[in-house]
Design a protein around this nucleic acid. Structure first.
Lengths: 239, 239
DNA sequence: CCTTTAATAGTCAGCCCGACTATAAAAGGG
DNA sequence: CCCTTTTATAGTCGGGCTGACTATTAAAGG
């Protein structure tokens, strides 16, 4: 970081890009916006925007998250820096360095237009055509990261409402990993991990579906999973 | 990434900062440079520099790595993006966004001055006083990341020379984790993981120390560790 | 030649986990 | 009202990984 006298080149624009995930009807969805201008006019893209002079990338990301989702309070949502994308040609207009973030939402509020003219929409993961810029790569990296963190953190509860059943938590894992899990074993593992979930004192849900009503749980205080909850190895076809 | 008409603010300077680790005489060392100018004149700092207009942050990081270590070929070294630091006040002179990287070196070539005027030096991890800027935090984050990745990747071989003994590999783990490991169990685990290490055909080292000569191994082709090699839980005092 | 040192081999019990079966408690249909 | 369906929850059993530990081998040094 010495040698500031070298500062004799064009400066950079710094943006944030957001990969915002939620689960709707048992399927993983991503928040996308439709671009109205060139380049990539009409293509879908990750929401994002410029970092303002007085804010950090994290602050900018949370501000964009609030704007694009229309939620009034995004302070409790999981927001995590993914990595920074800085290839020289990634934006044809100018030199843009983008700090990518991943966010996880429990329920899916209908995306509203936000302050920008662009329309924001929830799209099932994998169904959107090629995205603008290098956003396909960013989105894939974000999905990989979330899947990997599910193994050794309690992150999955970020997809759940404040109170949830173990069946719902298991569906979150199955949706993100794309794998079926054994219900008794999943239950045993979650309950055996101290601080992962804690039982809600005197309640059990019944009205919802048919079948025995499930007990309700809240997210616990733990953040890491020791030992980890490894996803099953798919040995059918080694990818 | 829409709304480029908003681009009506001061631009950012983009730099890379490097946390370069190596192991010398059984102790973890970090590459640091001494600052010659204000601010933080005389303080130690992580090596780094500006990203040039025609290069990505990764390219800039590898270029800086070559300059600061004096190595002619850094193409095979492990270099990994850590995260980006963008707090508005982190550099008192101007708005600087820094992409931090972590690098791992097998042997420790004596640090030479590099192209900059600043002197580069290997310093035992933890012994350097408060570093310049927010580099203490970056260095701590890098150390955490390396320790965590040792659990579920084959990254530890990046600290080893091309051919090494299992005892040396174990010392790498013990140095980074700061924990003692059981030798037979470590050996069993490493050899049971396919692709972690592969035996060198017909060689055994003898001249070095007294005791039975150890077999030599090379880094394998595997990159991930399934199941992971978890570091022992220190239950003496819960940090 | 004996001791020291370090690598390697082997043993054994406990725990976690995958696979599986059994029971409980609701809804729905005849 | 009973019986089936559905889902949650409890329990079992064997294999594999792991921590703790002991034994053997092969060198160096006095």
């Amino acid at each position: 970081m010495d040698g500031y006298d070298k500062y004799a080149h064009e400066p950079f624009a710094v943006t944030v890009d957001l990969a915002v995930f939620t689960i709707r009807e048992g399927a993983l969805h991503v928040l996308l916006v439709e671009r109205g201008q060139e380049p990539y006019a009409g293509r879908w893209a990750l929401p994002g925007g410029f970092v303002q002079p007085d804010e950090s990338a994290e602050t900018a990301a949370r501000r964009e998250l609030a704007e694009e989702t229309g939620l009034s309070d995004v302070s409790g949502l999981h927001l995590e820096q993914l990595r920074t994308y800085s290839e020289p040609g990634r934006d044809p207009r100018m030199r843009v360095v983008s700090v990518a973030f991943t966010a996880l939402l429990p329920d899916a509020p209908e995306a509203h237009g936000g302050s920008d003219a662009a329309q924001a929409r929830w799209v099932p993961y994998g169904t959107a055509g090629p995205l603008a810029f290098d956003h396909d790569g960013i989105l894939a990296d974000a999905h990989d990261r979330v899947g990997a963190k599910f193994e050794y953190t309690c992150l999955a509860t970020a997809f759940c409402p404040p109170e949830f059943t173990l069946g719902e938590l298991q569906q979150v894992y199955e949706t993100v990993w794309g794998t079926a899990l054994d219900r008794p074993n999943f239950r045993r593992k979650v309950l055996a991990t101290p601080g992962f979930v804690e039982a809600v004192p005197g309640a059990a849900r019944l009205t919802g579906g048919r079948g025995k009503p499930a007990a309700l749980y809240r997210a616990g205080t733990a953040t890491a999973l020791h030992p980890p909850l490894l996803r099953p190895v798919r040995e059918g076809r080694p990818a």
